[in-house]
């Protein structure tokens, strides 16, 4: 029998306020975003942090929606496009953690993109965003390659990521985005 208390205890200790594992659908995202807005309202979060968390969350979750590849069938059976995400609230920041399978063939391309973004400072990111916005092609999925740049810009943090190779075909990509509570302004 699964130790449910163990799950609870781990999540409590990591200050997880919401978690999900499974197929990421449009309806799910609507619900999750609604729940998070209500939670942040109940916590009386300042509009500034609320907006940042919401914006970053939208991009992170829509990345899962668009870019989750099939899970390795031999290990996980038929649950083909499953992902995981967790939202944690610490003393001074929110953490948005996501994990999804991607094809091992795609790892290098994504890693290069993340490293490019991580090598840039604030002004470089702004210039890069504008250039991709203005010159980039829109994919049929409706993405424009702007998601990760936007996450880095809005969070003001380096993208903390990891790739774990499962087999030749599949790898697991995890991303931990921190949204820091801006220091409260003195009136």
């Amino acid at each position: 029998m699964l130790d449910i208390y163990d799950f609870y205890d781990k999540m409590e200790k990591h200050n997880i306020m919401l978690s999900f594992k499974g197929a990421v659908t449009s309806e799910l995202l609507s619900s999750i975003l609604g729940i998070m807005e209500t939670k942040m309202d109940n916590l009386a979060e300042p509009p500034k942090i609320k907006k940042k968390v919401f914006n970053v969350l939208v991009e992170c979750l829509q990345n899962l929606y668009h870019h989750t590849d099939e899970a390795p069938v031999d290990e996980y059976g038929m649950d083909v496009r499953s992902a995981i995400f967790m939202i944690g609230k610490m003393e001074d920041h929110y953490s948005i953690l996501t994990g999804n399978f991607i094809y091992t063939d795609h790892v290098t391309k994504l890693k290069t993109k993340l490293d490019t973004v991580n090598a840039m400072d604030k002004d470089e990111l702004k210039a890069y965003y504008k250039s991709v916005l203005n010159n980039g092609e829109m994919s049929s999925k409706g993405g424009g390659g702007l998601g990760m740049i936007d996450i880095a810009r809005k969070s003001g943090q380096k993208l903390d990521y990891n790739f774990m190779r499962v087999n030749d075909k599949s790898s697991f990509f995890s991303l931990n985005v921190k949204v820091v509570q801006p220091s409260k302004e003195v009136a």
Binding site: K51, F54, N55, V58, E59, Q62, G136, G144, L146, D150
Partner: peptide, 8 residues
Amino acid sequence: YFNTSSSK
């Protein structure tokens, strides 16, 4: 709010 899909 607007997402990056909308920004384009």
